[in-house]
Design a protein around this nucleic acid. Structure first.
Length: 275
DNA sequence: TCCATTGTTGTAAC
DNA sequence: GGTTACAACAATGG
């Protein structure tokens, strides 16, 4: 599942190889991924040069020379791959961008087809519904802005961290890992967390995300970077996916519960619920 | 057959 | 009545 560190890894890979390249030709194989008329998408994107590749939350943004930007969300299983045009297409390849001045083409692959791609006028970015609702970026947020995210909020800390409108980029893996490191129970009521606990949480989230980016993200399910390589942060997971296994801090069994219809992994001894 | 997974949407509940 | 919680939905493999 691509979350911030996986998306950031893909963005860095794309940036390295795509900057300055021209998109020669667009082939929409499965139109369901492109959330606008395929002909319009082709027309907007073809024959333009790639200026810049960016990330916002879990979204990828590709700015083109003709005042157009491509917006991509990888959903659960989406990935971008750079590969030789001669290679046979995989049955989950849904979009092919042929590039000038390179031996590679850019493929969008998505087994579950939950990903979304579209183009828009670059100047309209602030009006885009997908982006304008997003909360702040976890890696930049200041201590006071982070505390403010949670003031006057009720509910559980894990649900809030997963909410992209409050905080953009975290998914199930990195909320669980961060809450474990910060010794906060996922069901902890937000209004019972004091500013000191929140500051610990902010620093922990940043530490976990940075370590994950350094490891090239977590490869569970089928996540690959643009060169087709897997990440290695799954080897450093302390709780995610470890139900029944001993806690790496205290040794008792990791528990799994459901929060907001998502599996939540935590240590019932290290992550104590306060009220 | 059912479960797992994501973000969004509609609705129920508090 | 604003905020929160949850079911349903998209698609597919295990």
């Amino acid at each position: 599942m691509p979350e911030l560190p996986e998306v950031e890894t893909i963005v860095r890979g794309l940036r390295k190889t795509l900057a300055g390249k021209k998109i020669k030709d667009v082939n929409v194989i499965f139109p369901g991924i492109v959330k606008q008329n395929s002909r319009h998408f082709k027309k907007n994107v073809e024959k333009s040069k790639i200026i810049r590749v960016r990330r916002r939350g879990k979204f990828i943004l590709v700015d083109l020379s003709n005042e157009t930007t491509i917006l991509a969300h990888l959903g659960m299983t989406g990935s971008f791959l750079l590969r030789k045009p001669s290679a046979a297409l995989n049955k989950h390849d849904h979009l092919v961008l042929k590039l000038d001045k390179t031996q590679k083409e850019l493929i969008y692959r998505d087994l579950r087809k939950f990903g979304k791609i579209k183009s828009f006028g670059t100047s309209l970015e602030e009006k885009l519904p997908e982006l304008k609702k997003l909360g702040p970026e976890p890696l930049n947020i200041s201590p006071s802005d982070f505390v403010n995210l949670f003031t006057k909020r009720k509910g559980r800390i894990k649900s809030a961290l997963l909410n992209q409108q409050i905080f953009a980029g975290l998914g199930n893996i990195y909320t669980d890992e961060s809450l474990f490191e910060a010794k906060i129970h996922p069901l902890q009521k937000i209004d019972r967390l004091n500013p000191r606990a929140l500051e610990t949480l902010r620093q922990t989230i940043q530490k976990v995300l940075k370590k994950a980016i350094k490891a090239g993200g977590s490869s569970i399910e089928n996540y690959y970077n643009v060169d087709g390589e897997i990440g290695s942060f799954q080897l450093q997971h302390k709780v995610y996916g470890r139900e029944g296994l001993p806690c790496k801090r205290c040794g008792i069994r990791i528990k799994r519960i459901k929060i907001s219809q998502r599996s939540s992994y935590f240590c019932p001894r290290c992550q104590v619920l306060h009220n």
